Simulated scan of single mutants.
Amino acid sequence: MTESIPVSWAPESCALPTVERPLREAAFAALFHDHLTRVRRPAPAVAELVLDRANPARVRELVALEASCCSFFTFDVREAAGRVRLNVGVPSGQVPVLDALVASAVAASGAEVTP
């Protein structure tokens, strides 16, 4: 199911080899499809993603991999009551990348974005 999601969010500046980018995006899409329940955008350069029943270790592993190739991302992973809250931040010049990541998350999960 997630392989049909067309939203690509990897920026050209990403250090991940181009051939590996769709695999990384697919890993995030699968996470979002299976666990994302809410997306909040408290500011243009910040997204808060709430994942129900997600494996926190897997979320941390995935965001660590992403931060290693796209160092402009900041990720904060917190667990509480069976949920993982993933806060994602970017510098103002990278807001279009965050917008595309959020669009991918919404496409994969059906969650709606709230302010």
Rank of each mutant, 00 (worst) to 15 (best):
V19F: 08
V19H: 12
E20K: 09
R21K: 02
P22K: 12
P22T: 13
L23T: 13
L23Q: 13
L23C: 00
E25M: 01
E25L: 04
E25W: 04
A26R: 10
A27G: 06
F28Q: 02
F28I: 03
A29W: 00
A30S: 12
L31W: 03
F32N: 12
F32H: 13
F32E: 11
F32Q: 11
D34M: 01
D34F: 03
D34I: 01
H35T: 12
H35A: 11
L36C: 06
L36S: 07
L36V: 01
T37D: 14
T37V: 15
R38F: 09
V39A: 14
R40N: 08
R40M: 03
R40D: 09
R41L: 05
P42T: 05
A43S: 10
P44Y: 02
P44F: 01
P44C: 00
P44D: 02
P44L: 00
A47L: 07
A47V: 03
E48Q: 02
L49R: 02
L49M: 06
L49P: 01
L49Q: 04
V50I: 11
V50L: 10
V50F: 00
V50E: 10
L51P: 07
L51R: 07
D52S: 05
D52N: 04
R53T: 08
R53L: 03
A54T: 13
R58K: 12
R58T: 15
R58F: 13
R58E: 15
V59H: 04
R60W: 02
E61T: 13
L62Q: 13
L62G: 14
V63F: 10
V63S: 12
L65V: 06
L65N: 05
L65C: 06
E66I: 12
E66Y: 12
E66Q: 15
E66M: 13
E66D: 15
